[in-house]
Amino acid sequence: KYSDMIVAAIQAEKNRAGSSRQSIQKYIKSHYKVGENADSQIKLSIKRLVTTGVLKQTKGVGASGSFRLA
């Protein structure tokens, strides 16, 4: 599940300011076997996790910027 992968990526990075979408994508692609549409799936999952309150956006708008666990 992409949401689990995103949470794992943010936990692994341990950046106080949060993790960027690009760094999350890079982590997921190197640690998991994902399909061609992974980028758009990650983007959608990040937006969903922010609206449900699992992630907090520290910089930027939408799916860009930095995110950390709430």
Score class of each variant (00 low, 15 high):
residue 63 A to L: 11
residue 51 T to A: 14
residue 55 L to N: 00
residue 66 S to A: 10
residue 33 K to S: 10
residue 58 T to C: 14
residue 53 G to R: 03
residue 19 S to M: 11
residue 17 A to T: 09
residue 46 I to G: 00
residue 27 Y to E: 01
residue 43 K to M: 14
residue 37 N to S: 07
residue 5 M to G: 01
residue 64 S to V: 08
residue 29 K to P: 01
residue 4 D to N: 07
residue 40 S to P: 05
residue 45 S to M: 14
residue 38 A to L: 11
residue 62 G to D: 08
residue 47 K to L: 12
residue 21 R to K: 07
residue 39 D to M: 08
residue 38 A to H: 05
residue 48 R to Y: 14
residue 44 L to N: 09
residue 40 S to W: 13
residue 27 Y to I: 02
residue 34 V to A: 04
residue 24 I to A: 01
residue 24 I to D: 01
residue 69 L to A: 04
residue 51 T to L: 14
residue 52 T to W: 08
residue 18 G to N: 03
residue 47 K to W: 15
residue 16 R to N: 09
residue 28 I to S: 02
residue 30 S to T: 11
residue 24 I to H: 02
residue 64 S to R: 11
residue 43 K to A: 15
residue 30 S to C: 13
residue 21 R to L: 15
residue 23 S to I: 04
residue 34 V to P: 03
residue 37 N to Q: 06
residue 53 G to S: 02
residue 30 S to M: 10
residue 65 G to Y: 15
residue 53 G to P: 01
residue 41 Q to F: 10
residue 17 A to H: 13
residue 33 K to H: 09
residue 12 A to R: 04
residue 41 Q to C: 15
residue 61 V to K: 13
residue 23 S to Q: 09
residue 62 G to P: 04
residue 17 A to D: 10
residue 58 T to P: 04
residue 37 N to I: 05
residue 1 K to G: 07
residue 19 S to V: 11
residue 22 Q to Y: 10
residue 3 S to G: 09
residue 39 D to C: 14
residue 5 M to Y: 07
residue 62 G to S: 07
residue 28 I to R: 01
residue 57 Q to M: 13
residue 25 Q to E: 13
residue 11 Q to M: 14
residue 29 K to Y: 10
residue 14 K to N: 14
residue 40 S to C: 11
residue 57 Q to V: 14
residue 61 V to L: 09
residue 44 L to E: 12
residue 36 E to H: 11
residue 49 L to R: 01
residue 31 H to S: 03
residue 48 R to F: 14
residue 38 A to Y: 06
residue 46 I to P: 02
residue 10 I to Y: 00
residue 43 K to G: 11
residue 8 A to Q: 07
residue 18 G to V: 04
residue 16 R to K: 12
residue 53 G to Q: 03
residue 9 A to T: 01
residue 60 G to R: 09
residue 57 Q to T: 07
residue 29 K to C: 06
residue 15 N to Y: 06
residue 11 Q to E: 08
residue 66 S to I: 14
residue 64 S to F: 09
residue 21 R to E: 15
residue 5 M to F: 05
residue 8 A to K: 06
residue 65 G to I: 15
residue 33 K to G: 07
residue 19 S to C: 14
residue 52 T to A: 14
residue 6 I to W: 02
residue 11 Q to K: 13
residue 6 I to P: 00
residue 66 S to Q: 11
residue 52 T to Q: 13
residue 17 A to G: 13
residue 2 Y to W: 15
residue 17 A to P: 03
residue 26 K to P: 00
residue 64 S to L: 13
residue 50 V to D: 02
residue 26 K to V: 08
residue 54 V to Q: 04
residue 60 G to H: 07
residue 42 I to H: 01
residue 32 Y to C: 05
residue 6 I to Y: 00
residue 64 S to C: 14
residue 35 G to V: 04
residue 45 S to G: 12
residue 15 N to D: 06
residue 48 R to N: 10
residue 32 Y to W: 06
residue 58 T to G: 07
residue 70 A to M: 08
